[in-house]
Design a protein around this nucleic acid. Structure first.
Lengths: 191, 191, 191, 191
DNA sequence: AATGAATGAGGGTTCATTCAT
DNA sequence: AATGAATGAACCCTCATTCAT
């Protein structure tokens, strides 16, 4: 009757989408604050919906956590695209630092992700985004002669996994981890 | 009623010690085989004792797992002492490889340790041993000019943590992780 | 506000009727295939309507199942009327066999009916039809001297209930059940 | 300390056995009174034990119900052995009547059994006992010329299933069911 | 010192039904 | 009349730990 392209349907769907977002947001906050102790009904309450709604959008606790993880990785990819990419020669470094900062601000959530998914790596939609972003970063830095020519996206994944673990368990200063990763353990020959 | 001298007592203590060892061995095997699914009564059964006995020796599941972890680290320290130490210039490298091999052969156990203790690092008795061994390794390699002068035991801990995570979650080829850790990401200038 | 004549109205009613039929058909198929595991939303999906529509026509799951059951009994009554009735002296036997065949082809649905309604007997509209049909059958067979004079519709109901259970749980060969029901357990005297 | 042949162990085991019996008894009473509404924690409470204990003895709700069903069948078998067997010529009839009475006194429990196990027939240990008892009954009655020569245990099973359903759903007078089962539907010729 | 039966809080998930649109 | 997202009570089962024997 009014907006041609917006049938009555849309309204409902928009609400549903908003609920999904609310749940995700609530879950993220709760996991950040209370870690693994968070239960599904709590998430529902915090989001202002029933448990059923949580389960409608995320078929299992694991799926919810995966979605949270993916969201976080999406944001990191966004950062890689918008910021790191414009700093050839040190894009990868900036990327690693950003990851470090984000993870360090969210250790409990990381622990939940690790405990639930077995890994902290992106596994859903975000994976492709991230892969592409990091790929570009590497190419640009290599073009600038800043990083070794044989470095692959897989390598960076692996290192980020290590970085993530370092932060999560607090086994050391993560900035030092990045430093070592960049320069290596070996003593450099003169010059 | 009571046996005159100490024999009975001794006998008992020896039995207790043997039980402790049995439980530890059974636990290690079970965690290796079935990961986190292993329950305390199962451990008891496999060890041929009652649950109560398991709890007598290890006050909690966590304690049992810590003991298993420590045992493994003790063995690694032993290897560092007896083998790596005799290869100045590449002792640390050998150490890292050995750790990689041991962990790679035992991913499920590592996952249990991580899930339970929050880290894969030694926390009990083995910690001191390991610290000392690694310390020596570093010193010797540094003396040989093989590794950077500012490397500390803490750094190695941290890297081993990263290596451990890499192996546990299978996020990449752990030999490559070691390679990168040694040489760094940066491209090396000519010469 | 109101459509002048009846067309629009008719159209709507016809649609509604068609929806009811669709739902019923979908439900019958699904219960036949998946038994009690079928959920209301699944029925809706299979029928190509929303859950709300299912509930408009059948106020509860139980009501839906009752409707399915009644439909089936209506068909059986139809068979009694059109076929069995023309075979005086063995009409009841034919009837029992037909019931057996129908139920045997639909054990899962029968289980659902039993679990939901507490019985497999018709309870709605079909009851009257069936009662009348069976009544005629009995009368005709009795007239032919084929069955005992004191047999009532209630008796047949009861036996069909037993037959139904026999088939549903597979506790034996239902044809034998019918045979025993006809001839009894007692040994017949000479002649 | 006291009874020579009763080591400390026995005491514990006896207690466990008593608990098992208590749970069974409580379950039977509750199912009798409240049918399917009974939950595991309620059974535990009524038995004066924790849920865990219930689950130790009966690994699932279904197992508990199966045990209750078997117990009841065991009692029926006992009756067959001690009473029916001494009435050649009418043993089977007495048996059917007894089954009818027992089931009629316990419709709710029967409904639970049916809903849970899919059938009301004995499936565990009681099955063998019952089979043997009924077998003897049949043989003796046949020897007395009271029942048809081709009657098998399976036939009786099947009829008891039908009888059970009749009683459970109240689809008619179960005594009449027995009467019909014995005499058959067919009219008997003169003499 | 050893045993193992008992405990019981805890938690993820399902699904019939409602109701705003 | 139709839609389908939302609801939330209900429920079974697990398993680390305790403690009477």
């Amino acid at each position: 009757m009014s907006t041609p392209s917006t049938p009555t349907h849309r309204k409902t769907r928009a609400d549903a989408e908003r609920n999904r977002a609310r749940v995700l947001k609530a879950a993220r906050r709760l996991f950040h604050e209370h870690g693994d102790a968070v239960q599904m009904p709590e998430v529902a309450r915090a989001a202002g919906v029933g448990v059923g709604t949580v389960y409608r959008h995320f078929p299992s606790r694991q799926a919810l956590i995966a979605a949270v993880a993916d969201q976080r990785f999406g944001e990191i990819a966004e950062y890689a695209r918008t910021t790191c990419l414009h700093e050839p020669g040190r894009g990868l470094l900036l990327y690693l630092r950003h990851v470090g900062e984000v993870l360090a601000a969210d250790q409990r959530l990381s622990a939940v992700i690790e405990a639930t998914l077995g890994a902290t790596a992106p596994q859903g939609e975000a994976r492709a985004q991230l892969e592409e972003a990091v790929s570009s970063l590497i190419a640009r830095d290599q073009a600038a002669g800043a990083i070794r020519a044989d470095l692959t996206v897989g390598d960076v994944y692996m290192l980020v996994g290590g970085l993530s673990a370092t932060i999560r368990v607090g086994s050391g200063d993560w900035r030092r981890f990045i430093e070592l990763a960049c320069d290596g353990l070996r003593s450099r020959g003169p010059r």
